[in-house]
Design a binder for these strands. Structure first.
Lengths: 349, 349
DNA sequence: GTGAAAGCGCTAACAA
DNA sequence: TTGTTAGCGCTTTCAC
């Protein structure tokens, strides 16, 4: 592999000149720069990222750490971030934490904090306090921070408003017995874990029920382990088997994956969606457009989320580049992504 | 951020000793090693990957480059590779090429060849010859290499056998008019592009038709632009509208995404799957288990694929580590992942 | 069993 | 406008 010395030698200049020339520094004479570029191209030269990163502290690479690569929502989100970063000439690398604390720590310390200029991180089992202890001072943007104290810039999914919109939609189309799938009502009410994603979606749903003057209690809320599709399917089957018939004519599912599992479970039991029960999901994953029935959903605008996350990140990178003193830096910022309710067959009446 | 010098100083040893101690070199006395480890832990020391990689040429990170992060098959595949690599203490980073030649080149040259010890690459628009010119001599495993000459180790998806199994299954359940969705028959027959994934799946299908004594011609094959789900949906609608009725009672779709699009399109047109037409997909993506109807599919064993890809990669890494001369190295190896036909509702009769 | 020293490829002061 | 020089943090001979 050709190094910068090779290029410099071939172009008849010093290594420093070659370095400047390749990065388009205006101090280098146009002819010299051209000569260097030709040499580099002839030799198939590529700058060694480890060396650049070691020396300059910048690699031009950002990291995205998500739960699972093989689940639709996180992978669509990563894709959106990757596209957005590319627009700003940043390369994106994605890693999966597999929802394991150990992996989260390892990724944060090993790859992300060493190789990447900044990281967009979806914390699962690790608290911001722990992150602070582990992290090497580079910009870090959290997705759905569950901490009360804002220690890091963060972009939230539109949980409260989105969930409220979902419930209102079910009410609007005439549902009178609305269930919510994917939330452990008692755990949340008892522990006041209202900063988690499910807690915030629950809060939004409760607000909408309240505003509509609808009384709900724990019987309206059905938990599903780990928000898994199989669990949702099973829950739907059990609901269909309820003595006295299906207790709901409308359901809000905390995620699209849960909603699709529920649709599948109702199909197993011969319950018809939307005629017997209308279903609304949350996330807006692609497959909801092609399912049978297609899925009404609170669609998080992933392009907006990505733009906000990358925007926050670029601002911090800029502050670092300009070496701003602490007091001139922006305080911690917390943004929320846009959403829109996409009405499809699963609530068509 | 603490450096190794800090750790060495805190432990009262030299940097070299600290380095050995942290990597568990047996030459270091147990007590010394313990002291160093404590110091490292106290200081939240993390080894700087750029520095390690620059010096030793090893980072412990491998790269996976796939088309799209937000499509089920490539993301499930990346997740499988990531899990498999983790078993061998390798960190995995994933990047999307977005099916653009420019991005493929950029990823290969910039990140992957600099940061990663090896790469698993799904080539889309770049030929192995071009890769050779660009690539920096590190191990490279291709997925579904479309080149005739085997320049790189490669793992194939089980295209021919899988497609043949799909066709046989449709025949077995009694289909008499079988269509194949997602292949441009004329283009493939004319150009003899038989090394592409679609070409190889076509070849498998043709073999099965042939063995069953079934005559087929171009009318049995329906192309879909870019293997897109919307295109498949549209194609299914048009088939349903065919004058004289739906021409097929069974369809093999080149991918599960196409199959799900087709199921959706048939639902739009009031065509019932599997009663009116049976459908088999290819890939085995998770969502096929929860679709309505659930999808019969030729499921590529992603764990096997990942194990084979990472295995090839580890072998090459080992050859490099042992500095074997060229003549003692294994020749280019090409493996094929296992598959199994998963029978679900879409072909239940 | 441990330390001294060299250097991976690059960038950024500083000199010229 | 270009070259010289000094490291970034680490690993790895080679001495001791």
């Amino acid at each position: 592999m050709a190094t910068m010395s090779d290029v410099a030698k071939a172009a008849g200049v010093s290594r420093a000149t070659a370095s400047y020339a390749l990065r388009g520094d205006p101090r280098i004479a146009p002819e010299t720069a051209e000569r260097v570029r030709r040499a580099a191209s002839d030799l198939h030269y590529t700058t060694n990222l480890s060396a650049r990163s070691l020396r300059s502290g910048r690699s031009g690479v950002i990291g995205v750490a998500i739960f699972e690569l093989d689940k639709p929502y996180p992978s669509e989100m990563s894709a959106a971030v990757s596209r957005e970063a590319a627009r700003h000439d940043l390369e994106t690398i994605v890693q999966q934490t597999s929802n394991s604390k150990e992996r989260e720590i390892s990724i944060l310390r090993k790859v992300t904090s060493q190789l990447c200029d900044a990281t967009i991180f979806s914390p699962g089992n690790i608290s911001p306090e722990e992150i602070t202890a582990l992290y090497g001072g580079k910009p870090l943007i959290l997705l759905d921070d569950i901490s009360d104290e804002p220690l890091f810039d963060c972009v939230f999914t539109p949980c409260e408003d989105g969930a409220a919109a979902a419930i209102r939609h079910l009410i609007d189309i005439g549902c009178e017995h609305i269930g919510v799938l994917g939330v452990d009502y008692n755990a949340l009410v008892d522990d006041r874990q209202s900063t988690t994603v499910s807690g915030r979606r629950l809060a939004g749903a409760l607000r909408a029920f309240d505003e509509a003057g609808i009384d709900v209690d724990e019987r309206n809320f059905i938990p599903v382990d780990h928000w898994g599709t199989p669990g949702a399917r099973e829950a739907a089957r059990e609901l269909a088997d309820t003595a006295g018939g299906l207790p709901f004519d409308g359901m809000f599912c905390m995620t699209d994956s849960l909603a699709l599992g529920a649709i599948r479970g109702f199909a197993d039991a011969g319950v018809h969606v939307p005629d017997d029960v209308a279903i609304v999901g949350f996330d807006g994953i692609n497959e909801g457009e092609y399912s049978v029935p297609s899925l009404t959903t609170v669609s998080t605008d992933l392009n907006d989320l990505a733009a906000k996350a990358v925007g926050l990140l670029l601002d911090r990178l800029d502050e670092d580049a300009r070496n701003l003193p602490q007091e001139e830096r922006a305080g911690v910022r917390r943004l929320t992504a846009d959403y829109r309710l996409i009405q499809r067959e699963s609530t068509r009446r």
